[in-house]
């Protein structure tokens, strides 16, 4: 007897829970060949608003953790992903139309990328921080501090490696993130959310919305409680990217500008992937007290 299909409608990931879109809307997700795979929630501006509230709530706790502990947790994400490799390989194959071998390489690269960033958590301060020599009896210390709530428009093409490459550097330094996944290829992001939910990442640190960057992006860009925005997901759409930059200027958000075309995510990331979303704090402290 034929089994009845288990038809899936994936949900959003906000504040550590998996709610449906507030709008009640969902959309059909197809594989690279155009065949129906599953339904995904279509996030609305109100979901974005809720996600920002969740991210803001999580920020104090997450940024207050020791860098060492954040490293442990990001490494834990990689561990759990490793356990669920086959699922990710299938998702990436469906989404990006890759061969099995190439999809496996993508998943490997994504997991390795997490491990790589986990290592940076307690080392970035040594690299970009400094004990500045000053003309007086003071210690003068510059250290990187997280910027705050970062909106991330994830890459449209690279649904897993690209996603991990923009999310990991944001959270590893202590920021919290509101992520809008690839519109056409959201399912690896949904699987990634399920991994986050089971890998010691506090709820709200990463919030993943499946939906269209052009509809949600402007609300995040103009949101006064978002401190920075990464426009990777609107690569190639110069007009939209400009609009978002203008909206983001209102509260002086940090903006990582959209590239002209999506980069090759296999390349080792530059340090700016992390330092774009940190603030340098300098403190003076008298010597000998």
């Amino acid at each position: 007897m034929a089994r009845i299909d288990v038809r899936k409608t994936y949900k959003l990931y906000i504040g550590g829970a998996f709610p449906r879109s507030e709008s009640g809307h969902s959309y059909e997700v197809t594989d690279a060949g155009g065949k129906f795979v599953a339904n995904a929630s279509l996030a609305s501006r109100k979901d974005a608003r809720d996600a920002v509230v969740a991210a803001r709530k999580a920020f104090g706790g997450w940024s207050g953790r020791t860098a060492y502990n954040r490293a442990q947790i990001v490494y834990r994400i990689a561990e759990v992903m490793e356990d669920r490799r086959p699922q990710f390989v299938t998702a990436v194959r469906q989404a990006e139309g890759l061969t099995a071998a190439r999809a496996e390489r993508v998943v490997d690269a994504a997991i390795d990328r997490l491990v790589w960033y986990a290592g940076w958590a307690d080392k970035l301060t040594q690299v970009v921080g400094n004990a500045n020599p000053v003309a007086g009896p003071y210690f003068n210390l510059s250290t990187p501090e997280p910027t705050g709530v970062v909106a991330v428009l994830a890459p449209q093409e690279s649904s897993l490696l690209g996603l991990v490459s923009v999310v990991a550097p944001v959270i590893v330094t202590g920021n919290t993130a509101v992520v809008v996944s690839s519109y056409e290829r959201p399912l690896p992001a949904v699987n990634f959310a399920e991994v986050l939910a089971t890998s010691d990442v506090p709820g709200g640190v990463v919030n993943i919305l499946t939906g269209a960057a052009p509809t949600i992006g402007p609300w995040l860009a103009s949101h006064m409680d978002v401190n920075a925005i990464d426009l990777a997901g609107v690569a190639g759409d110069a007009a939209l990217a400009t609009d978002l930059e203008v909206a983001a200027a209102d509260n002086l958000k940090r903006v990582r500008r959209a590239p002209a075309a999506e980069p090759d995510w296999n390349a080792e990331p530059p340090l700016t992937a992390m330092t774009d979303f940190v603030e340098i704090k300098t403190v003076w402290h008298p010597i000998g007290v």
Binding site: V52, R56, H223, M224, D225, V226
Partner: peptide, 9 residues
């Protein structure tokens, strides 16, 4: 204003 505000304000 047509844009979301935040607790900083």
């Amino acid at each position: 204003t047509g844009r979301y505000s935040g607790p900083d304000y």
